[in-house]
């Protein structure tokens, strides 16, 4: 027999998955805008705001579940993890908007080399997808694999910064815009790893690295 709390937990899961879909779309669109030189910041801002509101919904729902049912053990851990995961998805939205803003701030970037950003974005988007799949399937191995990919994104960012320091004569517009976007992708990758950690916490009762 389903418990009264199960309805609330189901709603919580649905909202988090709704956030997952929207945040993934936001990041993909922001990278597409960068690659194709399209200013999509208005659209991405709207999605980012929607994500922020959905995160508030998750928090409100979690508080309601605490107040109504005093969840314990796996229920408590699941709600806590959903709050953390929804924060991660809302950050994806915010960084997607930040990426879109780079184009607005720097103007035409068609002369710049897009290769490193695009290569890094492929890994980052894969991390997002894996973190979402890990959450929806409660797949611990998939969740662990997200963190393993984080080094690739970190290295791309660090190497770019080193190169920038070594070669100060590079085009400042290209260098600065690439640095900013790589930094946002690096932050997105971190949050994808945190989402993976939360999935591990839900499934195994253990904090990642514990």
């Amino acid at each position: 027999m389903a418990r009264l709390m199960d309805m609330g937990l189901e709603k919580l899961t649905k909202t988090v998955l709704q956030m997952a879909e929207l945040s993934e779309k936001s990041v993909a669109t922001s990278i597409e805008g960068y690659s194709e030189g399209k200013n999509l910041s208005e659209q991405i801002y709207e999605w980012s705001e929607e994500l922020r509101k959905l995160q508030e919904e998750v928090s409100d729902l979690a508080i309601e579940l605490f107040a109504r049912y005093q969840p314990v053990a796996s229920d408590l851990r699941y709600i806590k993890a959903c709050m953390e995961i929804s924060y991660g998805f809302s950050r994806f939205g915010r960084y997607a908007y930040d990426i879109a803003e780079v184009l607005q701030m720097f103007g035409d970037l068609s002369e710049c080399d897009h290769a490193l950003v695009e290569k890094t974005a492929i890994t980052t988007k894969e991390m997002i997808r894996k973190s979402i799949d890990a959450f929806s399937k409660r797949d611990v191995e998939l969740a662990k694999s997200v963190r393993q990919m984080d080094d690739i994104v970190d290295n791309n960012y660090r190497e770019h910064v080193s190169k920038m320091i070594r070669e100060p004569k590079l085009d400042i517009k290209c260098v600065a815009s690439t640095t900013l976007i790589l930094r946002y992708l690096e932050r997105i990758a971190d949050h994808a790893s945190y989402i993976g950690d939360s999935v591990i916490f839900i499934a195994t009762r253990k904090h990642a690295g514990a």
Partner: peptide
């Protein structure tokens, strides 16, 4: 016990399952 019980039986009892 209430946040992270070790036994599945405890988990099921305190969560009402």
């Amino acid at each position: 016990i209430f946040e992270n019980p070790k036994q599945e039986l405890t988990e099921r009892y305190i969560t009402g399952k």
